[in-house]
C-alpha cells in the first residue's frame, strides 16, 4: 500500500471492524442487555412495591373516610336521638306540670269551697251566738236600766231637796 499516508491499510481496517463488531455483539448480548434487563426488573420490583404501598394508602384513606362518614352519621343519629329524648322529656314534663297545676287548682278550689263552707258555718254559728248574746244582754240591760233609773230618780230627788 505505497502512496497511502501513514500506511493506512483498508484490509486491516476491515479486520478491526470485524473484531469490534464481534465485540459489540457479544458485549450487547452477554453483558449490556442482561444487566439492563435486571435493572429494569428491579425498578419494576420497587415500582410494584411503591404501587402496592400507594394502593394500601389509598385503601386506608378510603376506609378512614368511610369511618369518618359513619362516625359523623352516628353523631347525627345520636344528636337526633338526644333531641327526640329532650322533646319527649319536655313533653312529659310539661304534661306533668299541667297535671300538677290542674291538681293544685282543684285542691285550691276545694279548699276555697271548704273555707267558704266553714266561713258560712262559722258566720251562721256566730250570728246565732251573737243573737243569743244580744238577747241576753238586752234582757240584762233592761233589768239593769230599771234599777238604775229608780236609783237615779232617788238621787235627783235627794239633791233637789237639799238645794231647796
Amino acid at each position: 500500500m505505497t502512496g497511502v499516508p501513514l500506511n493506512i491499510d483498508w484490509q486491516q481496517i476491515m479486520l478491526h471492524l470485524l473484531n469490534f463488531t464481534i465485540l459489540f455483539g457479544a458485549l450487547w448480548i452477554l453483558l449490556y442487555k442482561p444487566v439492563k434487563d435486571f435493572i429494569a426488573k428491579r425498578e419494576k420490583y420497587y415500582e410494584d412495591i411503591d404501587q402496592k404501598a400507594q394502593d394500601n394508602l389509598k385503601a386506608s384513606e378510603t376506609e378512614r373516610d368511610e369511618y369518618k362518614a359513619r362516625i359523623s352519621q352516628l353523631d347525627q343519629e345520636i344528636r337526633a336521638e338526644k333531641e327526640k329524648a329532650r322533646e319527649d322529656i319536655d313533653k312529659v314534663t310539661s304534661q306533668r306540670i299541667q297535671e300538677a297545676r290542674d291538681e293544685a287548682e282543684q285542691i285550691l278550689n276545694d279548699a276555697k269551697a271548704e273555707a267558704e263552707r266553714q266561713k258560712e258555718k262559722i258566720i251562721t254559728s256566730a250570728q246565732k251566738e251573737i243573737s243569743d248574746m244580744v238577747t241576753e244582754a238586752t234582757e240584762k240591760l233592761a233589768l239593769e236600766q230599771s234599777a238604775s233609773d229608780a236609783f237615779d230618780q232617788f238621787l235627783d230627788a235627794a239633791e233637789r231637796t237639799e238645794r231647796g
Partner: peptide
Amino acid sequence: LLSGVIVSGILIVFALIC
C-alpha cells in the same frame, strides 16, 4: 490489530463469565 483481537477476547471472556 493483534492487540485489538486480544482485548476483544479478554472482554468477551469477561462478559461470558459474568
